[in-house]
Amino acid sequence: MQPSPAEIARTLAAGHLPAVAHIACRPGPIPVRHVTDGQGRVLLLVPAEGTLAVALRPQDGNDDTALVLDIRDVPPMATSPSLGRVWVSGWAAKLSGDEARAAALDYADTDACGDLLDIGESQELYRMEVAEVRYERNEKLVEVDPDDYAEAAPDPLRTVEFDLIADLADHHVAEMSDYVRRQLGKNAKPGDEPKVVRMDRYGFMVRMGARSARLAFPRPVTDRHDLAHLLHPILCRRCCDPAT
Rank of each mutant, 00 (worst) to 15 (best):
M77C: 10
R137T: 03
M1T: 09
T65L: 12
R207G: 03
E136R: 13
L215Q: 02
I30S: 00
A14Q: 13
S80L: 11
V196H: 00
L83I: 05
R182I: 06
M176S: 00
P81N: 06
D145T: 04
A19P: 03
L231F: 04
T222D: 15
A104D: 00
G203L: 08
N138H: 11
M176D: 03
R219F: 03
A102G: 07
A53D: 04
R137Q: 11
E124Q: 15
P76V: 05
Y135A: 01
D192C: 11
L230F: 00
Y107K: 07
V160H: 07
V196R: 04
P218R: 10
G120Y: 11
T159G: 13
D70F: 10
C113R: 13
G84T: 05
T36G: 05
P233E: 06
D145Y: 08
P146L: 06
F162Q: 14
A14P: 02
L231S: 04
W87Q: 09
T51N: 06
M176Q: 05
Q59I: 10
L141D: 15
D70G: 05
D163E: 14
C239I: 12
E136Y: 01
Y135Q: 03
E99A: 13
G203H: 07
P29W: 01
S96V: 10
K195D: 09
Y107H: 10
G209K: 10
A53N: 06
T79W: 00
R237Y: 06
I119Y: 11
A24P: 09
L184C: 10
V54F: 09
E7R: 03
P154D: 00
A228L: 08
I119N: 09
L117N: 14
R158C: 10
L44F: 06
A66E: 15
T79I: 11
A103H: 10
V86S: 02
A243H: 13
E124K: 08
V173G: 00
T110K: 10
Q39T: 09
P220D: 09
R182P: 09
A14E: 07
K195A: 13
L116S: 02
D155Y: 08
D63L: 12
G84Q: 02
R214E: 15
C25I: 00
E151C: 12
M1V: 05
C25M: 09
C25D: 15
R181V: 14
A9V: 09
E124W: 00
L83Y: 07
S82M: 01
P156Q: 03
P233R: 06
V68F: 04
P156E: 12
Q123F: 07
S122I: 09
A102D: 15
P218W: 11
G15E: 02
Y149I: 04
A169N: 12
M77L: 15
A131K: 14
R224G: 07
W87I: 05
M128Q: 14
T159Q: 13
L69I: 14
A243L: 12
D115F: 13
P242Y: 07
A19Y: 01
P29H: 01
L168R: 11
F204D: 01
Y149M: 12
T110Y: 10
A55M: 00
R201E: 11
